[in-house]
Computed example of a mutant assay.
Amino acid sequence: MSDLNPKPAGSRPPRQPRTGVTSTGARKAASKSGRSRAREFALQALYQKLVGKNDVSDIDTFTRDLAGFSKSDSVHFDALLHGCIDEAAELDALLTPLLDRPFAEISPIEHGIMWIGAYELKHCLDVPWRVVLNECVELAKEFGGTDGHKYVNAVLNGLAPSLRAAEVGADRGKARA
């Protein structure tokens, strides 16, 4: 060993803690479920629709060829991508009263995330409403702007009682008890 290199040859840097989150607070890829991955791919696909105005079949084909898609829940991806695009006007109508600005001033990332949240709240009743909100907040933390997750959370938290009244009421009743 020389004085310039005090470490023995072949030594490794210290291990990083495996907390399951990155330095930004987003979940690490290894800790994501197939549905979480499906939401990520659906968001990327919806972004292509919102920004590029690409054809949904071209978007679908392109997205399925991306690295890591095989680890996602392809059935959930299909439901989100095609459901959000097919019901875009209806989802926007549900979300608009909860916004403080027009959709034209909202990032396409946050717009896509809110579509996913609204779609899941409306159609994916097997996913608890709090899980829908948490998953959308995680997407916004990972892909959105600095405080986009706060906006997404506020809008979807306002939407949940109208689409899942009994479930939200029961959860909020437990919290008060």
Rank of each mutant, 00 (worst) to 15 (best):
S36K: 11
A118Y: 14
I113T: 05
T61D: 14
G169W: 08
Y119H: 14
K53W: 14
D126A: 15
A154V: 05
A165L: 12
S31Y: 09
V152A: 11
L121Q: 13
E142Y: 00
E40T: 04
V51N: 06
L99W: 06
G169T: 03
K122G: 07
D171H: 11
S11A: 12
S72H: 06
C136N: 12
P6I: 01
D126G: 11
A175H: 04
A170L: 11
K28M: 04
R172S: 12
R172N: 12
H76R: 09
G169S: 14
G25P: 00
H111C: 08
V168H: 09
L81F: 06
R176G: 07
L43P: 02
S57D: 15
F77L: 06
A93F: 12
P13R: 14
S72W: 06
R27E: 05
H82L: 07
R39V: 00
G158E: 05
T96H: 07
L4T: 03
R37K: 12
A118T: 03
N153L: 04
G10T: 03
W115T: 01
H82N: 10
A67P: 05
L95Y: 10
V137P: 03
R12T: 03
L80I: 07
G34C: 14
N157P: 00
D100Y: 10
T61H: 10
T96R: 12
S70C: 13
H76N: 09
L91Q: 10
